[in-house]
Amino acid sequence: MPEGSASLQLAVGDRVVYPNQGVCRVSAIDVKEVAGQKLTFVTMRREEDGAVVMVPEGKVLAIGVRKVASAE
């Protein structure tokens, strides 16, 4: 991610809310080559049905992904 860009610090195992998809758990953060460029992807699995969603790390905030609020 370019320096100075806002990002959401995620780790494998974090629970997040993905708008219009529901609650997901981060299952992987991997670098993949797409069209000759190396990009970091956040892979999330929906808790409702296990569907897998992959989002480029740089788009996580723009999409509206946020961490699940704690009970505290």
Results as ranks from 00 to 15, higher is better:
1 M>F: 11
1 M>L: 12
1 M>W: 11
1 M>Y: 13
2 P>S: 12
2 P>I: 12
3 E>V: 12
3 E>A: 13
3 E>R: 05
3 E>I: 11
3 E>F: 05
3 E>Y: 03
4 G>P: 12
4 G>Y: 09
4 G>L: 10
4 G>M: 11
4 G>D: 10
5 S>E: 11
5 S>P: 12
5 S>L: 12
5 S>A: 12
6 A>C: 04
6 A>D: 10
6 A>G: 13
6 A>H: 13
7 S>F: 11
7 S>N: 11
7 S>C: 02
7 S>G: 13
7 S>W: 07
7 S>H: 12
8 L>P: 08
8 L>T: 09
8 L>G: 09
8 L>N: 08
8 L>Q: 09
8 L>W: 09
8 L>I: 10
9 Q>V: 11
9 Q>M: 09
9 Q>R: 13
9 Q>N: 11
9 Q>H: 11
10 L>M: 04
10 L>S: 01
11 A>S: 12
11 A>H: 11
11 A>D: 05
11 A>T: 09
11 A>F: 08
12 V>I: 10
12 V>Q: 01
12 V>C: 00
12 V>F: 01
12 V>D: 01
12 V>W: 01
12 V>N: 01
13 G>H: 02
13 G>D: 03
13 G>F: 01
13 G>Q: 01
13 G>L: 02
13 G>M: 01
13 G>I: 01
13 G>P: 00
14 D>I: 03
14 D>C: 01
14 D>Q: 04
14 D>Y: 01
15 R>P: 02
15 R>K: 07
15 R>F: 14
15 R>Y: 15
15 R>S: 05
16 V>E: 01
16 V>N: 00
16 V>P: 00
16 V>Y: 04
16 V>D: 01
16 V>G: 01
17 V>T: 07
17 V>H: 13
17 V>N: 07
17 V>L: 14
18 Y>I: 14
18 Y>P: 01
18 Y>W: 12
18 Y>G: 06
19 P>V: 04
19 P>S: 07
19 P>I: 04
20 N>R: 08
20 N>M: 09
20 N>K: 09
21 Q>W: 15
21 Q>I: 15
21 Q>K: 14
21 Q>T: 07
21 Q>G: 10
21 Q>C: 08
21 Q>N: 11
21 Q>D: 03
21 Q>S: 08
22 G>K: 04
22 G>T: 05
22 G>Y: 03
22 G>M: 05
22 G>Q: 05
23 V>N: 04
23 V>M: 09
23 V>W: 06
23 V>Q: 03
23 V>D: 02
24 C>T: 01
24 C>M: 14
24 C>L: 09
24 C>V: 04
25 R>M: 12
25 R>I: 15
25 R>S: 07
25 R>F: 11
25 R>V: 15
25 R>E: 08
26 V>H: 00
26 V>Y: 00
26 V>F: 00
26 V>I: 14
26 V>G: 00
26 V>S: 00
26 V>C: 00
26 V>D: 00
27 S>R: 04
27 S>Q: 13
27 S>C: 01
28 A>D: 05
28 A>P: 00
28 A>M: 06
28 A>G: 08
28 A>N: 08
28 A>K: 09
28 A>L: 05
28 A>C: 00
28 A>T: 05
28 A>V: 04
29 I>A: 00
29 I>K: 02
29 I>Q: 00
29 I>C: 00
29 I>L: 06
29 I>E: 00
29 I>D: 00
30 D>H: 15
30 D>L: 13
30 D>P: 01
30 D>F: 15
30 D>Q: 11
30 D>R: 08
30 D>A: 09
31 V>A: 04
31 V>P: 02
31 V>E: 07
32 K>N: 05
32 K>G: 04
32 K>H: 12
32 K>Q: 09
33 E>D: 10
33 E>W: 13
33 E>L: 12
33 E>S: 07
33 E>A: 05
33 E>V: 13
33 E>F: 11
34 V>A: 04
34 V>M: 06
34 V>N: 04
34 V>L: 06
34 V>P: 01
35 A>I: 03
35 A>D: 14
35 A>G: 14
35 A>L: 09
36 G>M: 02
36 G>A: 02
36 G>K: 02
36 G>D: 03
36 G>L: 02
36 G>W: 02
37 Q>H: 09
37 Q>E: 12
38 K>S: 07
38 K>Q: 08
38 K>L: 13
39 L>P: 01
39 L>Y: 09
39 L>Q: 09
40 T>M: 08
40 T>K: 11
40 T>Q: 05
40 T>W: 08
41 F>V: 12
41 F>S: 02
41 F>L: 09
41 F>E: 03
41 F>A: 00
41 F>K: 02
42 V>Y: 10
43 T>C: 02
43 T>V: 14
43 T>Y: 10
43 T>K: 05
43 T>G: 01
44 M>F: 15
44 M>A: 01
44 M>P: 00
45 R>K: 11
45 R>E: 14
45 R>W: 12
45 R>H: 14
45 R>T: 15
45 R>S: 08
45 R>I: 15
46 R>T: 03
46 R>S: 07
46 R>E: 02
46 R>K: 05
47 E>A: 03
47 E>V: 06
47 E>N: 02
47 E>G: 01
48 E>N: 08
48 E>M: 11
48 E>T: 12
48 E>V: 13
49 D>N: 06
49 D>L: 02
49 D>R: 01
49 D>I: 02
50 G>P: 02
50 G>Q: 04
50 G>D: 07
50 G>N: 07
51 A>D: 05
51 A>N: 06
51 A>G: 10
51 A>W: 15
52 V>L: 13
52 V>Y: 13
52 V>H: 05
52 V>F: 11
52 V>D: 05
53 V>C: 05
53 V>I: 15
53 V>R: 03
53 V>D: 02
54 M>I: 15
54 M>G: 03
54 M>A: 05
54 M>H: 08
54 M>F: 08
55 V>N: 03
55 V>L: 14
55 V>Y: 06
55 V>P: 01
56 P>R: 06
56 P>S: 11
56 P>M: 09
56 P>W: 14
57 E>W: 15
57 E>A: 15
57 E>R: 06
57 E>S: 15
57 E>N: 06
57 E>I: 15
58 G>Q: 11
58 G>F: 14
58 G>C: 08
59 K>P: 07
59 K>Q: 14
59 K>E: 15
59 K>A: 13
59 K>R: 09
59 K>W: 15
59 K>T: 13
60 V>D: 05
60 V>M: 15
60 V>H: 06
61 L>H: 14
61 L>D: 11
62 A>Y: 06
62 A>K: 08
62 A>M: 08
62 A>I: 11
62 A>N: 08
62 A>V: 10
62 A>W: 05
62 A>D: 13
62 A>H: 08
63 I>L: 14
63 I>D: 15
63 I>A: 13
63 I>C: 08
64 G>F: 07
64 G>L: 11
64 G>A: 08
64 G>S: 07
64 G>T: 06
65 V>D: 04
65 V>P: 03
65 V>H: 05
65 V>S: 05
66 R>H: 13
66 R>Y: 10
66 R>K: 14
67 K>L: 15
67 K>N: 05
67 K>W: 06
67 K>S: 06
68 V>K: 06
68 V>S: 06
68 V>F: 06
68 V>W: 04
68 V>Y: 06
68 V>I: 14
68 V>T: 07
68 V>G: 06
69 A>S: 13
69 A>H: 10
69 A>Y: 06
69 A>V: 12
69 A>T: 13
69 A>N: 12
70 S>R: 10
70 S>V: 11
70 S>C: 08
70 S>Q: 12
71 A>L: 11
71 A>K: 11
71 A>V: 12
72 E>G: 10
72 E>N: 12
72 E>T: 10
72 E>P: 11
